[in-house]
């Protein structure tokens, strides 16, 4: 068994398809059709990953997400048809770990689930060195190297990269980065993050037009490749 996945979707066809598809990839799957059931299952069955559809009848996805967060340590992947960028940001800020846009293929979904599970496993291990390709961020010594070559970053640049590295593989919103790196007063000034990310990329020898380490999440923020 590679993990327990709770599917929260009001469409029976979707539930069946995901139950079958995910079980072929050795996941243990349960499916429910409402937010209330999701909260019940989250506390009693203790899934590792929850696939939460935002368009639930009754208690909607955002309300469910809010109620789920204190109840479970499971990673939450938000699933939605035609989400606006604001919906994605709102879900991430409310504690979602990732989002997947419907329609999706099973392979893509499995890859996302494995990525959040990997991150979950990494965090408690307290791994002091985070790797993204040949980029290494050594949290204990506050050093950054690319292919063994030391990269000198300003404190702001390091803080931003550190935060992305701590959440490697997860999309981090502009708002979160601004709050974490600059403080609450800077929230809303996205040029800061864009400018600093451009500087970091330059120092890492990365190409903005085809980045290897820090990738854009259009309309949302950035993600450090896991």
């Amino acid at each position: 068994m590679s993990g327990r996945v709770l599917v929260v979707d009001d469409e029976v066809e979707m539930q069946r398809a995901l139950r079958a598809g995910l079980s072929y990839h050795d996941f243990d799957v349960r499916a429910v059709g409402s937010g209330e059931e999701a909260i019940r299952e989250a506390t009693s069955w203790r899934p590792d990953v929850i696939l939460l559809d935002l368009g639930l009848p009754g208690m909607d996805g955002f309300a469910t997400l809010k109620a789920l967060r204190p109840a479970t340590r499971a990673a939450v992947i938000v699933v939605s048809v035609m989400p606006g960028e604001k919906d994605k940001v709102r879900a991430l800020d409310a504690g979602a770990d990732d989002y997947v846009v419907k329609p999706f293929g099973t392979e893509e979904l499995v890859a996302r689930i494995r990525a959040v599970l990997r991150r979950q496993a990494d965090v408690p291990a307290g791994e002091p060195v985070i790797r993204s390709g040949d980029l290494e961020v050594d949290l204990a010594h506050r050093t950054v190297t690319v292919n063994g070559r030391v990269v000198r970053l300003t404190p702001t640049e390091y803080e931003l990269l550190r935060y992305l590295a701590l959440h490697a593989g997860k999309p981090v919103t502009h708002t979160t980065l601004l709050r974490q790196v600059w403080g609450d007063y800077a929230v809303g000034d996205k040029y800061n993050t864009r400018y600093v990310v451009a500087q970091i990329r330059k120092k890492l020898g990365d190409d903005s037009a085809n980045p290897r380490y820090i990738v854009n999440e259009p309309g949302v923020g950035y993600r450090l490749e896991g």
Partner: peptide
Amino acid sequence: SPIASLRAGLTALAA
């Protein structure tokens, strides 16, 4: 929404 179910089902069986 139905396309989403279709794709999820088709790709599940294609594994």
